[in-house]
Write a protein that binds this DNA or RNA. Structure first.
Length: 264
DNA sequence: TAGATTGTTACCGT
DNA sequence: CACGGTAACAATCT
């Protein structure tokens, strides 16, 4: 679910808790911290301290604690952030529509009141202390053309990883997931299976421009599932631009849709 | 019912 | 060793 644009919405929601003092940590579902941090260590590290800042790095939401560690939230496929009862997004695909209380997996309580809750039906979300940000590439929303070029890889004679695989590689560029990748490549007119290192400079600039524009658009529209391609991302779907039937394949382990006419 | 699903990671093969 | 493909995780929705 949550790709960069959803987590950006979560971030804006989470800004509400900056300055608040944490008084309670409730690991409702031990799954969210399994193998990462014990309940006791987590509570000891953050309880009694204030939230000094919130940040986003790709799909990772970072809550900074004054005089304490960073708290990292990952949302998996269906995680939603809820602050004081308000959800960060209206709805998520492939997750249940309602914010059922049984999906509250992790809760932070503040004094004198208020709470931050991670809702996650499918339980692929995670919470950890001092998450590793070193292994994440530059954030896709602010990456420069030069950084994008580095992320895609150096020029090689031939072969190399597919363009879409590189775009979704969080260690090279942070924030782009399956739906955003398909939408960006469709807008930029680039074939997802194209060797990433084979782009010309004009193509690289075009990709960068569409990456920025797509993130802006879908953030405003409300999510990574609001792209122009989304409704046609199904068997028999057609390209909204030239009406050709869309092609489908597995690229980078994910179902990929593209227009065989204008994406090359 | 069968099939598909926005993410991450371990594992296996080349 | 690097890389890519695959399965697993988990639970829901169409």
């Amino acid at each position: 679910m949550p790709e960069l644009v959803e987590v950006e919405r979560y971030l804006r929601l989470a800004e509400r808790v900056v300055g608040r003092r944490i008084v309670e940590i409730d690991v409702v579902d031990p799954h969210v911290t399994r193998g990462l941090v014990s309940d006791a260590d987590l509570a000891a590290a953050v309880c009694g301290r204030r939230v000094s800042a919130v940040r986003r790095h790709g799909k990772l939401l970072v809550i900074e604690i004054a005089g304490g560690p960073r708290l990292g939230l990952r949302f998996g496929m269906t995680g939603t952030l809820v602050v004081d009862g308000d959800a960060g997004v209206d709805r998520l695909l492939h997750a249940s529509a309602a914010l059922d209380d049984r999906w509250a997996r992790f809760r932070v309580g503040f004094a004198p009141r208020g709470e931050l809750v991670l809702h996650d039906p499918r339980r692929l979300g995670r919470v950890e202390l001092d998450p590793d940000e070193e292994s994440l590439g530059p954030d896709a929303a602010t990456a420069t053309p030069a950084q994008l070029a580095v992320a895609l890889g150096r020029n090689r004679a031939s072969g190399g990883p597919a363009l879409k695989v590189r775009l979704m590689d969080q260690s090279r560029l942070a924030g782009v997931g399956n739906l955003l990748a398909d939408e960006v490549l469709w807008r930029a007119g680039l074939w997802p299976g194209r060797p990433a290192a084979s782009l010309s400079m004009p193509e690289l600039r075009r990709l960068h421009r569409h990456l920025r524009q797509t993130l802006d658009d879908l953030l405003a529209r409300g999510g990574s599932h609001t792209g122009d391609l989304m409704a046609e991302r199904r068997p028999g779907g057609h390209c909204p631009r030239d009406n050709a039937e869309l092609a489908r394949a597995i690229v980078g382990g994910r179902t990929t849709w593209w227009c065989p006419v204008h994406q090359c």
